[in-house]
């Protein structure tokens, strides 16, 4: 049975792109356009993996990620963080906070925009085993 992946991004183009890419590679796709909808779908649909945009309206990706990790029901669902920020910038802004808050496990993978498709698929494969 195909693995279920939830793509959360406020940019419709990004949703279309990621859905098409992951569908083509045999995954079942769910989508959401903001944090609220995303968190709701995580709880109801129980995806195997979440692809999360960092910057979004109505609960940014970071906020949603924290809530996801804090909720014991869903905290074990792996998350791939997708963002336009460069890797050198992102840790300064957010990883430090995550490290400080020890209760929160960092995202399982970190993918930069523009997305390297091969890298993304490899990471998802690695996470899902």
């Amino acid at each position: 049975m195909a693995r279920k992946i939830l793509v959360i991004d406020d940019e419709p183009d990004m949703v279309t792109f990621l859905s098409t890419l992951l569908e083509d590679n045999g995954y079942e796709i769910l989508t959401a356009v903001d944090g609220d909808e995303g968190l709701h779908k995580v709880k109801t649909e129980r995806p195997d993996l979440v692809s999360l945009d960092l910057l979004m309206p109505n609960k940014t990706g970071i906020k949603m990620f924290r809530e996801l990790r804090k909720d014991p029901d869903i905290s074990n669902i792996p998350v791939v963080m997708v963002t336009g920020f460069a890797t050198d910038d992102a840790p300064n802004m957010d990883f430090k906070k995550w490290i400080n808050e020890r209760s929160i496990r960092p995202p399982e993978a970190y993918i930069e925009k523009p997305v390297d498709t091969v890298n993304l698929l490899n990471e998802i494969k690695r996470i899902l085993g």
Binding site: E11, D13, M14, T16, F17, L18, T20, L21, G84, V115
Partner: peptide, 9 residues
């Protein structure tokens, strides 16, 4: 990213 996505789709 949008362009890349469009091309892929």
């Amino acid at each position: 990213s949008g362009l890349q996505g469009g091309v892929y789709v």
